[in-house]
Amino acid sequence: MNKKRDMEVPLMADLAAKNKTPEYLLWVGCAGSYDERYQKVIQALIKVLNQASIDFAVLGPEESCTGDPARRAGNELLFQMQALSNIQVLNNYKIEKIITPCPHCYNTFKNEYPALGGNYQVIHHTELLDQILSDNPSTLKSLDDFEGKKITYHDSCYLGRSNNIYDPPRRIIEYLKGTLNEMGRIKADGLCCGAGGSQMFKEAEKGAKDINIERTEEVLKSRAEIVTTACPFCLTMLSDGIKAFEKEDDIKVLDIVELFEKPDDKPAS
């Protein structure tokens, strides 16, 4: 597979000009657009999509916040402005299927936009990867070797409890022959990273400790060498937690899709 093809990012507007509609829209999200660390996740995802010959495009400059953080913080008016504008854009392009790596965007598209007139089939990137691995595994090869590597997975609340996606990320780890070292609180009992409900965008309220520290203690207890997650906010919170314990050299924090990257391309946490 040549490098240029791997890195190709088709734009929705360009395809529309040629009268083409891709099968999927890849919704990058604000973290993927602006957060340097999470941009790496998007790059890894785009490589994987190209390798598996997924027919996709991105909105690029036309993308905007889904409105989720505004809504969770109580600003319904701002949410409605964002959501209705987005729905206009999406419907103009006749988008039917959306892939997104962000569980908060996922939840908003899937469960909240329908009431506003936006109906899409929404697929989280871990669901897509899991699907590719079961249908067409030859198209997707990890460039790393996880045989015997201890990997743990942190459930994102908006993916897990809220949308029942527990197994696809775990199946991917197993497929890559990693040893899944589960934490104490997982799946429906999973502990939040502390960023949900717009906490990502404000100082924590007074308390005994930060939530991500509580969660990181559990991550460290799992004795995993890699902690994976599938949410940009969880990734930030866990990376900060690992840094707070000065364990960056012992344990990497990766998004599930980054398991397909070459070992030296993988960012250190």
Binding site: C30, S33, P61, E63, S64, L78, S198, F201, K202
Partner: peptide, 26 residues
């Protein structure tokens, strides 16, 4: 912090203080 985030979404279409024109820079 939230009022700032609201402001950012209104003006930059992202919850952070980042230029809207940089959205596709990644």
């Amino acid at each position: 912090d939230w009022n700032m985030m609201f402001n950012n979404i209104e003006t930059n279409f992202a919850p952070w203080k980042v230029p809207a024109s940089d959205r596709f820079k990644w």
